[in-house]
Design a protein around this nucleic acid. Structure first.
Length: 448
DNA sequence: TCTGGGGTCCTAGGACCC
DNA sequence: TCTGGGGTCCTAGGACCC
């Protein structure tokens, strides 16, 4: 049987959902951002025509198109539509992999290899018909303003590359005999898995194009790169990505991070931020019915001036939004706790201990990002007795989760007394969304 | 005016055990 | 008292993805 994989990728997803739910914004430039001092994280098709794209600073977007509609993210709504389109996909195959919030792989091998009236059908023609039907159903059943681009190929790598070739609302079929043509069209970094750093390392070996990579000896790649050398080889052959197979993989870690806005960068700001992040992580652990025993805390400091890294090895230069970032100092520390953790308060106390052990100079106002992650997760169903004081804690947590689920995060919270003042006055900048709109629910905190 | 926040995988090197 | 090598676990951090 000819293996057939489809990759379906939503176009300008967050921005399209905002337009789907807001008629006045349809056909207009819309930008989604975390806060007005940050960057555009999703731009509508109309905004893209004005040169506004993911990664554009908000101030620049306003300069490019002053009347742009700006909105904060609405993760719940994006998840709502994702669940809807995954349900449509599930009508066509059991081998379905949600790859991210806006894209999925479908193994449609079975329904594409059919025999009608004794005649074997062309599996690629069948696949194209199936995906056209899916695209139509997306418009009628999921959201009439939502569009997606699809790619069809013999493996996940080709399907993903194909879906990227025609946007928006595209459909590209790559038959086995078309594979050779891809080598003339694609750059190294068009291959998912090859980024800025890997491209540079390949360039140093004289590998400048995808053809070069295809023709480079497998054994030499392994010699230079180890295990990733095997992945590079199969990417070069367009034979499959580093991840093949359709597995519903369990969640391995849950974390939150937050960038402290410039005007809030002052000594002592990290603790209340860490507290809020810890409670958010705890709430998600409870929703997912997971606990973990590894805690990771990390802090990023301000980017170094470019002149300081001139001539240095470019380690630490990171990529994103098609741009290369300046050097960023990151410190992080993981710790195995020796017990299972779930309660946000416990997470906070442990992460405070970790933060202290990092011995950062907290008078340094340049610290700007703090994150906390719980890893090495396992489902609570596997555990017998979870927590000390479970009989007291559980009803409290359940009640808190219920209220916050209905009225929004931190409507009700247990705040350690020494942080209460900072958080009530919102002197940490965690509530900058109020630049967009005021919350309909009065936020209430009580000391603990 | 000047860069988000959520993840996964992999490696290197140290600790520790046999 | 001194020494070998293999295996495993742990942590820090880089690279990459959307």
């Amino acid at each position: 049987m000819q293996r057939i994989i489809a990759h379906i990728d939503m176009n300008s997803y967050f921005a399209s959902v905002e337009q789907q739910d807001n008629l006045a914004w349809r056909g207009q430039p819309v930008g989604v951002c975390e806060h007005l001092g940050g960057i555009i994280i999703a731009a509508s098709v109309e905004a893209k025509k004005w040169g506004i794209k993911t990664g554009t600073p908000v101030w620049e977007a306003k300069r490019l198109y002053p009347k742009i509609f700006l909105t904060p993210t609405h993760p719940d709504r994006y998840r709502h539509y994702t669940a809807k389109f995954l349900k449509v996909f599930a009508d066509y195959t059991d081998d379905l992999e949600k790859y991210s919030i806006d894209e999925a792989f479908l193994d449609i091998t079975k329904i594409c290899n059919t025999i009608k009236n004794g005649v074997r059908q062309d599996p690629f023609a069948e696949a194209e018909a199936v995906v056209r039907e899916i695209k139509l159903r997306m418009k009628t059943e999921v959201g009439d303003w939502l569009r997606c681009s699809a790619g069809i190929g013999t493996n996940k790598l080709i399907a993903k590359i194909a879906s990227d070739m025609q946007k928006p609302d595209g459909l590209v079929v790559v038959r086995p005999e078309d594979k050779i043509k891809l080598y003339d069209k694609l750059a190294l970094t068009d291959i998912p898995g090859i980024g800025f750093r890997m491209e540079r390392r390949l360039n140093l070996l004289g590998i400048k194009t995808l053809k070069d990579l295809r023709d480079y000896p497998h054994s030499k790649l392994v010699e230079k790169f180890g295990i990733p050398g095997h992945h590079l080889h199969s990417m070069g052959q367009l034979e499959g990505s580093w991840k093949e197979g359709f597995i519903d993989e369990p969640i391995k870690s849950i974390g939150h991070m937050y960038t402290v806005a410039k005007e809030y960068r002052k000594p002592g700001v990290l603790e209340p931020v860490l507290y809020k992040l810890s409670e958010m992580v705890g709430a998600r652990l409870r929703v997912n019915e997971m606990t973990g025993d590894v805690l990771h805390v990390h802090v990023h400091t301000l980017a170094k001036p470019m002149e300081q890294i001139m001539g240095e090895d470019v380690r630490g230069v990171s990529e994103g939004f098609g741009r290369t970032y300046k050097n960023i100092d990151c410190v992080g520390k993981s710790r195995r706790l020796g017990y299972q953790i779930q309660d946000g308060r416990d997470i906070f106390l442990e992460s405070m201990a970790t933060l202290k052990s990092l011995q950062l100079d907290t008078t340094d106002a340049s610290m700007y990002l703090v994150g906390v992650t719980v890893a090495s997760l396992q489902p609570t169903s596997n555990q017998q007795s979870l927590f000390r004081f479970e009989n007291i804690k559980k009803p409290v947590m359940t009640a808190l989760d219920k209220v916050n689920d209905k009225y929004g995060d931190f409507t009700l919270a247990r705040v350690p007394a020494f942080l209460a003042r900072d958080i009530i006055r919102d002197s940490i900048g965690f509530g900058r969304m109020k630049e967009f709109k005021s919350s309909p629910v009065k936020r209430t905190f009580y000391g603990h």
